[in-house]
Design a protein around this nucleic acid. Structure first.
Length: 272
DNA sequence: ATGGTTGATGGTCAA
């Protein structure tokens, strides 16, 4: 089974690219972020014609997340318990949706950007991640064998190797100690990032700003992840970042991240 | 070239 995550930065603007990606990439489950669509505006039919079921969560032209699956799509959850809101009055934004697909609970997550250190949005980002971590901890405490994938745009570069310039980001967001601690909190909750082992080359990124020829200069960040519970991690056979999708006219500023799973965990070495 | 990209929008804000 092949899973992928992709911040498309407007599905409407990216429709041709996304459909072409799905036609050629053999992806069974795709987690999409930043559709920038309300549910009523989501173009369900073109995906259904390719054999995918759609679970979309969008309230307006900001955020918007979806899970697309051709291996079943059940028990859709919009948002997660305890998910913080933002603004006055606080609104719970469309940043999390999940479904059971192919026996795995797959989340599509769009973590708040944070904007600037000290900005209210930054505190919102940390609170959002804390609440997410508590949910994961609770689920894995209840079922150590739960098959979970938390795919999405985390808007955090967990290590210095995940940014093109440590100095450039020193006073910005995405690399600060509290953000990295929040990301580590998810790992401490029982998740792991199996993609990294397959994408070890230096300066491997998933996002490049549109400005300043950042992609052409490979000045990017690794901020998109597919965090997995142990039950899923034990089935991983490969992973990759589809850098080609960042090329050319009409590209998203993020590239898709792909993860391949064996049908069942290998028989040796994983007994609990 | 007083700029820088893109997208949703219809003035600017967000990323």
């Amino acid at each position: 089974m092949r899973l992928a995550t992709w911040n498309v930065n407007s599905l409407r603007a990216r429709m041709d690219r996304v459909l072409e990606f799905m036609r050629r990439s053999e992806v069974d489950v795709l987690a999409v972020q930043e559709t920038k669509l309300a549910d009523a505006a989501f173009p369900v039919q073109p995906f259904e014609e390719l054999g995918y079921q759609v679970a979309h969560h969008g309230l307006n032209h900001w955020n918007g997340v979806a899970v697309l699956s051709r291996v079943g799509l059940d028990d859709v959850q919009r948002g997660f318990p305890g998910q913080p809101g933002y603004g006055d009055p606080a609104v719970v934004e469309a940043r999390a949706v999940s479904a059971l697909a192919g026996g795995i609970r797959v989340w599509s997550l769009y973590v708040p950007n944070g904007r600037e250190q000290g900005h209210p949005h930054f505190d919102y980002k940390l609170a959002w991640l804390k609440a997410l971590g508590e949910q994961v901890s609770g689920q894995l405490a209840a079922d150590l064998d739960a098959a979970l994938v938390l795919a999405g745009d985390y808007n955090i570069a967990p290590t210095d190797a995940d940014v093109w310039s440590v100095e450039y980001y020193a006073d910005k967001t995405h690399t600060s100690p509290p953000e990295r601690a929040a990301f580590q909190g998810l790992l401490d909750a029982g998740l792991s990032d199996p993609v990294r082992a397959f994408t070890r080359a230096p300066k491997t990124f998933t996002y490049w700003d549109y400005q300043q020829l950042r992609f052409q200069k490979n000045r990017g960040m690794r901020i998109d992840f597919m965090l997995c519970s142990d039950a899923v991690r034990d089935r991983v056979s490969g992973a990759s970042i589809d850098r080609d999708e960042r090329k050319g006219k009409g590209a998203s500023d993020h590239a898709p991240v792909l993860l391949d799973l064996l049908d069942t965990a290998p028989p040796t070495g994983n007994a609990r």
